[in-house]
């Protein structure tokens, strides 16, 4: 019981603290790769604290939904994170939900984020909401199909169980179904976290922005929650990718301290490697036109469908 509590508190803290650092790292590396100096990786912490201290301006047109949304966005990201195994395999809230609950919670956060964008009557907000819901709608089937593929191979929608079953036969990670599902999920990750071929996290230019447009009217501590929630969501999705689709080194249920240490190291290494790939993709690609994004996501969907076909054949 105590261990469970420790696990819960530990993972909550890890999610809260690691997420901004990861966003910071990606920003920093991207700048380095583009020959700029860039902000230090821990700058995001300072940003959040600064947002928290600042006064808040709320639009005169906004209703109660506007103030309700930041809490939902933040809490759903955190709850979803507690269902994904990070360092040891049974995630703290594994009993309360698996893959479907994670996807559902993230969708709930997005729902309120989009409502928060519409509420202050700003055109930018409406545009952001519209685009966000569109892109997530076409990314969702690809994501589900990719997750289904691993769930079917593992025989469960329980994330911890999926991670453990793929882990017990490491060489199976090379199995085409797995590789294809991983690829599809990576594309979805780019779309869901608002990364470059789909959205540009660095600008406030109305032609490109999706996520930032929805946050335009948020300020002060609500903005802090929104930004923090977004970075936690990014961490959750990346954790899902590295630990469920590629669970090398993940510690099991009754792991020793040493095993946990190895697991933590492996987790961080995988996370940084994935971030590096994201950075390279962001730097080498141009932002796509909005109506070209479906091409990308349909490719992801077909990849996931092929992954499914492969489970059917190569077993």
């Amino acid at each position: 019981m105590n261990l469970d509590l420790l696990n819960f508190v530990g993972q909550t803290l890890a999610l809260l603290l690691l997420a901004p650092l990861l966003s910071g790292c990606i920003k920093n590396w991207k700048a380095k790769l583009q020959n700029r100096r860039g902000p230090r990786p821990w700058q995001v912490y300072f940003d959040i604290v600064k947002f928290l201290r600042k006064d808040m301006v709320i639009s005169e047109h906004a209703s109660w939904v506007f103030s309700f949304a930041p809490y939902v966005v933040f809490l759903t990201a955190l709850l979803a994170g507690l269902m994904v195994p990070m360092v040891n395999a049974p995630a703290p809230l594994r009993l309360f939900g698996g893959v479907l609950a994670v996807v559902g919670l993230l969708a709930l956060g997005r729902f309120f984020l989009a409502l928060g964008g519409l509420d202050p009557a700003s055109t930018f907000g409406g545009m952001g909401s519209s685009r966000e819901m569109t892109i997530s709608a076409i990314a969702e089937p690809a994501m589900m199909l990719a997750i289904f593929t691993v769930a079917i191979t593992a025989g469960s929608t329980d994330l911890s169980q999926i991670a453990q079953s793929t882990q017990s036969a490491t060489w199976k990670l090379l199995n085409p179904a797995h590789v294809l599902a991983f690829a599809a999920m990576f594309v979805v990750l780019l779309a869901e976290t608002g990364r470059i071929p789909v959205d540009n996290p660095a600008t406030h230019l109305e032609l490109t922005m999706i996520h930032e447009a929805m946050l335009l009217e948020y300020s002060g501590r609500y903005l802090a929650l929104m930004e923090w929630g977004a970075s936690i969501k990014q961490l959750v999705l990346m954790t899902l990718l590295v630990n469920v689709f590629f669970p090398v080194g993940l510690a099991g249920p009754q792991a020793s301290v040493a095993a946990l240490g190895i697991s933590l190291a492996a987790y961080l290494a995988k996370l940084l490697a994935l971030s590096a790939v994201v950075v390279v993709v962001e730097t080498t690609n141009a932002k796509m036109r909005l109506f070209r994004v479906p091409d990308l996501l349909s490719t992801a969907f077909v990849l996931a469908a092929l992954a499914l076909l492969s489970t059917f054949l190569f077993q």
């Binding site: 969708a107 409502l115 089937p141 589900m144």
Partner: peptide, 20 residues
Amino acid sequence: PLGGAMLALTGALAAACFVK
């Protein structure tokens, strides 16, 4: 599973529709 994927599409589109 394909039905499941379509169900996911439906759910996401329904969310978009009710945001609207």
